[in-house]
Amino acid sequence: MPLVSVLLPVYNAERYLGPAIESILTQTFTDFELLITDDGSSDRSLEILQSYAAQDTRIRLLSRENKGLIYTLNEMLEQANGEFLARMDADDIATPDRLALQVQFLRQHPEVVCVGGAFDLIDPQGRTVQWIPMPEHNDEIQQMLLIGRTIINHPCALMRRSALQQIGGYDPDMKTVEDLDMLLRLGEIGQLANLPDVVLKYRFHPNSVSAQNILFQSQMAERACQKAWTRRGISGYYDSPQPWYRPLPEPDSQQQFWHHYGWWAFCNGFRLTAAECGLKAIAAKPTTLKSWKLLACALIKPIPKPVSNLQTVLQPEKSV
Rank of each mutant, 00 (worst) to 15 (best):
D43L: 10
F119W: 11
D97Q: 10
R149E: 07
L8V: 09
Q125V: 03
G82Y: 04
E78W: 08
D31E: 15
M1A: 15
Q108Y: 02
S23Q: 07
N194L: 09
E78H: 14
Q104S: 15
G68V: 10
S51M: 12
P304G: 05
A53E: 07
I24W: 09
L158K: 07
G269P: 02
L46S: 04
L121R: 12
L299H: 04
L314S: 00
G40F: 08
F204H: 02
L17C: 08
Q142I: 14
R149Y: 09
P110T: 14
I152A: 01
Q219R: 14
P124A: 10
T312F: 03
A274Y: 01
W229H: 10
P304F: 02
V307S: 04
M76L: 15
Q226L: 11
R231T: 05
K305S: 08
R58G: 06
A54S: 15
G18F: 01
I70Q: 02
V129I: 15
D120L: 11
R246K: 12
S308W: 06
A118W: 02
A283G: 03
I152L: 13
P286A: 14
D179K: 07
R223E: 09
P2Q: 11
Y71R: 06
S162M: 13
R271V: 04
L272S: 12
M88V: 08
P243K: 03
D43T: 06
Q50I: 05
Q143F: 12
E178C: 15
H154D: 13
L8D: 03
Y170Q: 08
K280C: 03
G233Y: 06
I132Q: 00
V6M: 05
T176C: 06
I234W: 02
P124C: 11
A283I: 04
W264C: 05
P241F: 14
D123S: 13
R64S: 11
L46Q: 09
L73Q: 06
A298Q: 02
I48H: 05
A193V: 09
H154V: 09
